[in-house]
Design a binder for these strands. Structure first.
Lengths: 197, 197
DNA sequence: GAACGATGTCATTGGTTGATGACATCACGG
DNA sequence: CCGTGATGTCATCAACCAATGACATCGTTC
């Protein structure tokens, strides 16, 4: 409706145009995508939401990332790379503290979201699983092997899954005390519980 | 297309009409909803899917349940009630075995789905949380209190969250060994791990 | 400073979904 | 035997979404 005819674009008041910088726009989209995908998941987030949050036209998502799904993948790998900065495995307590701290500050994040949401595409989920296996399970397996624990891989997978569950419960507010207990206390209890290996 | 004109409905071959029984249709819808919602979650399931799976016209969902969301609630409470038939808390091992068995046979189920999906409506999630608190946390708290464990509620919430995480990992195939290990072996290891309380 | 590519904006399109109302058909009571 | 309400079926609507292409505008290079 109101076919706009050929009215010059600069007629009543020109909307402040975004500075013409592809890198900045792309980064803004990626950052907004990490935040929104991490909070609402893939299906719960629209490209319009991302565009609005980033102050960027949603059509640029197609231009820079190809599609919404590829933007999601980009958000996952970006988060995974940031994670790489953290040091190596230094025991269950550090891993627990790192996870809880992350969750408390930033929410679940795209990687965890990709793990639990059944509507994520296969490639995305596999990337997230590989990330977890590499960053969490593998170091724990090495540690258990060094200490001569039986069935180190299966045990590690169980412990990591339990950790994820505890963090999910805290982030999503399943239970009152788990949600509100101070981080240090939680880390202590969880470490004591899962360290019996 | 093909505007059908005024051709008599009984012209070429009449589609076998569903027997005229509201109760049967409603039950079929509820059962299909439990299965599909449990597998794909709320957003991932369309009312057309449910109708097709149940062999019932999707429009009847609106008639019998009011809306898709109310059907979801009905599926959750139905599952919760079935759960009520199971006996009381008889120790961590039984709880673990029951959860793993359920997951292996039927997938996550609407209650767990409602817990982990961020797109579930508040009333639904609260119902699922209340169900977990009542059926899992409360019995464990009672058991720990009887045994004089410190901070029984928080510990129970942690253990239950860990259990959920382990079952999530198994059902969603996060890690290879966790996914394929026989149920009995898994129950043994998990019980041993979480029983250090 | 002119041309051309890069970048941002907008409208539209095709598709899917949940919901709704009209209609056909059956069951049951009078 | 008839009518009235319950039940099943169908077509369609309104809303939403991702994706696409046309177009305007900026910047850079020659």
């Amino acid at each position: 409706m109101t076919p706009r005819l050929s009215a010059p674009r600069t007629s009543p008041q020109t909307k402040p145009r975004r500075p013409r910088n592809a890198v900045v726009s792309k980064q803004a989209l990626l950052k907004a995508a990490q935040s929104l995908f991490g909070q609402r998941g893939f299906e719960g987030t629209t490209i319009r939401d991302i565009g609005e949050s980033a102050g960027v036209d949603p059509a640029l998502i197609a231009r820079y990332f190809g599609s919404k799904a590829e933007l999601y993948i980009a958000a996952v790998v970006a988060e995974a790379q940031v994670d790489h900065s953290s040091s190596d495995f230094e025991g269950l307590e550090d891993m627990t503290a790192a996870m809880v701290g992350r969750i408390d500050e930033q929410g679940l994040g795209p990687v965890t979201q990709a793990l639990i949401r059944s509507d994520t595409r296969n490639e995305i989920r596999q990337a997230a699983q590989a990330h977890m296996a590499r960053r969490m399970v593998a170091p724990m397996v090495a540690d258990m092997t060094r200490r001569g624990v039986d069935a180190p891989r299966l045990r590690s997978e169980i412990v990591v899954s339990a950790l994820i569950g505890i963090n999910l419960g805290r982030a999503l507010g399943w239970f009152d005390e788990l949600k509100t207990v101070p981080k240090e206390r939680l880390v202590d209890l969880v470490t004591a519980l899962l360290d019996a290996s």
